[in-house]
């Protein structure tokens, strides 16, 4: 009853383009168990735990409404300020959370990685999937406010047929968050101080993304820079499909897709090369 034995070769360096997709697929059960573990653990720890996911975006949205909307008087493309900011904040938070949490995969999990082998990419991928739950909660909150504005007659329902592209937006955001996370986690293992720079950098990047202002309000000479940011078309498309404002540009969206896929693949290659010897440097 001898079945075919798997051949494993352990060598100092693996092939450059070995993406280990097959290995990751073999461990898909582990992936979902990690997601489950993180969700359960987060909810069990505090009663207020899930509530925080509501409070935080509401506070952020209120702050933005007050400071950028009322004090600074930035344009919101004619949309109710709350809805405008909340749309941007919801998408941006998913991306930045995924990036921040995956960027220290190796240092955070050194304990478990030092004792047992599984494809390390499972860890950041599971984090990105876990974050989807929080994204879902914030999306619900957004829908709640949307409904409130529609019912009270302050805004009329304005869903666009491009709504069917919404799942694609989520996939692009996941790939972007993971891609950046992969590359940064490889770097933070070696140069630990980079972590502080990342938190700061992500915050800066937000101002280079149309979260607090619409793309249309930008002077033409800044537009190319803001459009080079792959998150720009995502937030613009999101606002367009749900609120009917902003622009829907398939060229820009296509750029985001290509950017996300290339970034993800490069990130995975770098990540896979780091996983081999990171235990010696952590």
């Amino acid at each position: 009853m001898r079945q075919e034995r798997v051949k494993t070769v352990i060598e100092p360096r693996s092939a450059w383009f070995d993406l280990k997709f097959r290995e990751i697929a073999q461990y898909k059960d582990l992936l979902f168990l990690f997601v489950r573990r993180d969700l359960v653990a987060q909810y069990k720890q505090t009663i207020l735990g899930p509530l925080w996911y509501f409070i935080q975006p509401i506070l952020t949205t209120l702050t933005y409404t007050l400071i950028f909307g009322n004090v600074a008087g930035l344009s919101t493309d004619g949309l109710p300020k709350m809805l405008f900011y909340m749309a941007g904040v919801t998408c941006w938070r998913y991306f930045s959370d995924s990036l921040n949490k995956t960027s220290n995969t190796f240092t955070q999990n050194a304990q478990i990685f030092g004792k047992v082998y599984f494809p390390r990419a499972i860890m950041p991928i599971s984090i990105t999937i876990t974050n989807l739950a929080m994204f879902g909660i914030q999306l619900l909150l957004f829908f709640g406010f949307y409904a409130f504005y529609v019912i009270t007659g302050q805004f009329s329902l304005n869903l666009q047929p491009e709504l069917f592209l919404f799942p694609l937006l989520i996939v692009i955001m996941m790939l972007l968050g993971l891609g950046f996370g992969f590359i940064l986690s490889a770097l933070t293992t070696k140069y630990r101080d980079l972590k502080f720079l990342i938190t700061f950098g992500v915050q800066l990047l937000m101002y280079a993304t149309p979260v607090i202002y619409p793309l249309s309000s930008l002077p033409a000479k800044y537009k190319p820079f803001i459009l080079a940011n792959p998150m720009t078309p995502i937030i613009e498309t999101f606002r367009f499909m749900f609120l009917g404002s902003g622009s829907m540009n398939y060229m820009h969206l296509g750029y985001s897709i290509v950017f996300a896929i290339v970034l993800f693949l490069i990130g995975l290659i770098i990540f896979n090369r780091t996983e081999k010897n990171f235990m010696d440097t952590v």
């Binding site: 798997v6 051949k7 494993t8 070769v9 352990i10 060598e11 100092p12 081999k276 010696d280």
Partner: peptide
């Protein structure tokens, strides 16, 4: 868990 510096291991199974 960690990789070798030089050399090779071949395992069946």
């Amino acid at each position: 868990v960690t990789g070798p510096t030089t050399g090779k291991i071949t395992a069946f199974g």
